[in-house]
Design a protein around this nucleic acid. Sequence first.
DNA 1: TGCTGTGAAACCGTTCACAGCT
DNA 2: AGCTGTGAACGGTTTCACAGCA
Lengths: 222, 222
Amino acid sequence: MLDKDPPESVSEATTHRLSLLLRSLRILDGEGVGTVSSQQLAERFGLNAAQIRKDLAQFGEFGIRGVGYRVPDLKEKLKWVLGLDRPRTVVVLGAGHLGQALADSKNFNSEGFKVVALFDNDRRKIGGRSRTDLPIRDIAELPVVARAESVEIGVLAIPAEAVPSAAVVLRNAGVRAILNFAPITLAPVPGLEVKNVDLTLFLENLSFRLAATGDRPRPKRG
Amino acid sequence: MLDKDPPESVSEATTHRLSLLLRSLRILDGEGVGTVSSQQLAERFGLNAAQIRKDLAQFGEFGIRGVGYRVPDLKEKLKWVLGLDRPRTVVVLGAGHLGQALADSKNFNSEGFKVVALFDNDRRKIGGRSRTDLPIRDIAELPVVARAESVEIGVLAIPAEAVPSAAVVLRNAGVRAILNFAPITLAPVPGLEVKNVDLTLFLENLSFRLAATGDRPRPKRG
DNA sequence: TGCTGTGAAACCGTTCACAGCT
DNA sequence: AGCTGTGAACGGTTTCACAGCA
């Protein structure tokens, strides 16, 4: 599938751009476009032509010199590179507002991802169902469900203090990756891929930029 | 307030780490810790001592040589650097599951952030209230509300195709920053700070890492 | 003595520019 | 002729190591 062994390490920036590229290719494919050059991709989707080529070069040679890329081919190759050529099963821990919204969301239930269960430890929530009818189960059942459904990814929408132990429970249940939305940095766990997504930090980043672009009394140099 | 003019441009990586640092200081302050060294911060919170010092150095000198940092002092200084020394008013566009979850969430209603309204264009939702009793208003009212409440940040939890026009509406209403959760990259808009947060991409990133760490038939070098 | 603040070195990712293939 | 794939130049960030101050 690949003409080249992937490098030891691929940067986050690259995988991020490859995801954006895949999205662009899906759009072009939907429009029936057969061939596209890196230049055209760059112009239409706000990317950088040289960077597209460099990113792809880490995994092989996918284009035709003098022509460009065959859209359907490159799309399939990229899906393979990103591990999206087969479905991935997801569970959500924490049936609060955010957990339920994520479990029900299209983002987490399309293009090969599927949320199969929602867990909580609150008696009042257990036994209920989300708005898309996903059952809310007791977190004690997680190991059984995770094995039965071959769950690969666990999404954490629980309080910060519950995160470290939840990570251990997930790993022991055979889950191999965690997407953590709680406001705590989950340290790397051997055998687990961890991604921390801290919603507060996005707002704080905007706050910083607002402050830096003139909404505060300019400091006088001391 | 600052002993140094901030540099022309501060990297995203730096502001991200400063937010994490502020969170760490809040914890220490809550424990009554008076002084801390960059080394201690690094060990306890999984940071890097040299990097803490370098990040802070962009804004001034905050420590005491031979001693470390006074926790309450540095906390306040950092809040100022990040623009968190005054409250910021937020509106959420899109009263779907995600929009409501965000509008109600603690992340968006603490440490100086406050969601004051939820907007939608769906007649069936308008007039209703979120679970924390936030009114769902007609998006046509946004300009009036935004001015009246001095809204600074708009959060987008709407379909991708509605994003560009929503950005324009927000800017025209005096809103200065946008946090976009829709699966589309909102291009920079003059006069607007934009941050795109694409939830799908986080899952795809984990998928890539799972694929790269051995869940697929190792390609044979051609 | 001990820790901050900071030049200098090392590292990494991006951009450039063109050789090479179709 | 045209566009990919890529070595080389560039720029920015991280790490190192120590001078300087409390």
